[in-house]
Nucleic acid binder design. Structure first.
Length: 168
DNA sequence: GCCAACGTTGGC
DNA sequence: GCCAACGTTGGC
């Protein structure tokens, strides 16, 4: 089981949008970066979990966690001519882009700000800081255990609030 | 909204 | 296969 960090622009799709989706499940599509695609296609699997990161907004940072509920499958949008994610070079027999379905798990009482993550020395090597443009990136087990982002008793730094992980 | 950093494209 | 031009990301 792996942990990931998925980035999203909340004006476009936020943790609340995920929570409001039917059964809390939404397709994570539109990934059009090869390194992110490779993680998605080759490493991400059903049962993995992710931190949802809000980018390009007033308070950037980790907004909640979600579960990967499918294995990767070809992103249908690459074949849809009217979609912004249409890729004329994608071939049905050799899909270029992949997606997964994710399910809402928990929302942080307050977004854990980027600067809080940055202030944690043990998180200094996170891909988030080393490769700021990577929209799907692994989070190591050691990073997951840091109090600021630990998924099971999120989030000491969020206004002192924390909450228990839901059993699967 | 700016702009630096980075990823992609395409001519050679 | 290089690399300049271009497009996009994302913090500020």
């Amino acid at each position: 089981m792996h942990y990931w960090l998925f980035k999203t622009e909340p004006d476009d799709f936020s943790i609340d949008d995920l929570a409001k989706s039917p059964q809390g499940v939404a397709r994570w599509d539109g990934i059009r970066n090869y390194q992110a695609r490779n993680f998605l296609r080759d490493v991400v699997r059903q049962g993995d979990r992710l931190f949802l990161y809000h980018s390009s907004c007033r308070v950037t940072g980790v907004a909640g966690i979600a579960d990967i509920v499918t294995d990767p499958y070809p992103d249908p949008a690459q074949y849809e001519a009217e979609s912004p994610y249409f890729d004329p070079k994608a071939d049905a027999s050799h899909p270029r882009w992949y997606c997964v379905d994710i399910r809402f798990s928990q929302k942080c009482p307050k977004v854990i700000p980027t600067k809080t993550l940055k202030a944690c020395e043990a998180l200094a090597d996170m891909a988030l800081f080393k490769q700021p443009r990577l929209s799907i990136q692994p989070v190591t087990p050691a990073e997951c255990k840091r109090p600021v982002i630990t998924p099971c008793r999120l989030v000491a730094s969020c206004a002192g609030a924390e909450f228990q992980d839901q059993p699967a």
